[in-house]
Simulated assay, not measured.
Amino acid sequence: MMNSAAMYPPLFAPAANIPGYGDYNVSGGYLPPPMPTEPIAPQPGSIPSDWSIPALTEDEARHAFKDFVSSHCCYSSSPADDGVITAMEPHNTYRYRLETFTEARSTDWAHKPYEGEVADHNPQQAPQPWTVHATPPNLFTDHTQEIRLPFTSIVKDCHTCVATGKEQCDACKGSGHKSCSVCNGSGKNTDGDCTNCSARGKVKCSDCKGEGMKDCKTCKGTRRLLAYIQLKVEWKNHVEDYTGDQNPVLKSDKLRSANGKELYKNNQFLLYPLIGFPNPAMAQASERLIKDHQSKFSQTSRILQQRQTVELIPITKVVYAWKGKSHFYVVYGNNNKVSDDDYPATCCCTIL
């Protein structure tokens, strides 16, 4: 066989020698997907007409407050037990979530230790990246698959060890020995000469058995590599949420983590924005995000499916009277969490 080191550069083969990749930069990043033969327009989904929001009852608010207080060792239960609810103000909001599931493809040169495989580089044209079959995962699931492109593999000398199969031992820097750990390289200890190193201050390197060289990590000592064009297929679910303006009674960090109740879900190849939604800002966010996703991700990937979800985040400000003063707490989320940053009956306690 002809010396591959003379044919190809040290690290990888030139694309000009791979039929079908002559004018193609193999390491050129993500590859734009082929355009569909006919553009596919999104279709409007069925939007429910009833967006009614169930109100929180006083019993539910009181029970949530008692659970909240009992989880804090320094909170007295008196406000929760004796406080009288005087008002309940709804501050409910919605969370819109858009998911765009894409498939992206890129190529790069890869190599592995040569183990006698047949190099299939020949005059037959290698398949283009978007024509190679790849099995996708479940929808809206991230996954990566690497595929060796047929008719692109060659055998070449290892560029790391220059086809010697050996490289310098990292542990001893090629010397074949290391400092004695018993005497710290002095050759002496409290009893006189160090017996571990025979008073030499150094011992044979156990990593390379005193040779100063080890098998090359790149070729595993085989001296040669199988180099090929590797196709990387990446499926990714791009998720973006919108919860609107700052809620007047709930901090933004708690609003973002709030457990919502799903009211609407729709998935299609390409989505149509919300129509008839009672909150104009939410409908506008839907239109903006869908347009942005379809424009941005179609440049470097293939959009396989989109999904939009609307969740209700119940938020109720509960005003109560205790010891002649008015206080409030906030019950939020589908699981009735409580937020109260100014609880009126706390004490100092020490955990032993």
Rank of each mutant, 00 (worst) to 15 (best):
A5Q: 08
A6K: 12
F12P: 03
P14H: 03
N17Q: 13
I18E: 07
Y24Q: 08
S27G: 13
P39I: 12
P39R: 03
I47G: 01
I53S: 06
P54M: 02
D59S: 08
E60S: 13
A61M: 13
R62F: 00
D67M: 12
C74E: 11
P79F: 09
A87T: 00
E89N: 04
H91W: 10
P113F: 06
Y114Q: 02
V118C: 07
H121Q: 12
P123Y: 11
Q128D: 08
T131H: 04
V132N: 06
H133F: 08
T135E: 15
Q145S: 10
C158Y: 04
T160I: 02
A163H: 09
G174A: 10
G176R: 03
V182G: 00
C183S: 05
S186L: 02
T195G: 15
K202M: 08
V203P: 01
C205Y: 04
G210S: 08
T222P: 01
T222S: 12
R224V: 00
I229N: 11
K232H: 07
E234D: 06
V239P: 08
Q246A: 09
P248I: 06
K254N: 04
L263T: 08
L271K: 09
R288Q: 05
E311M: 11
V319C: 03
C347L: 03
C348I: 07
C349S: 07
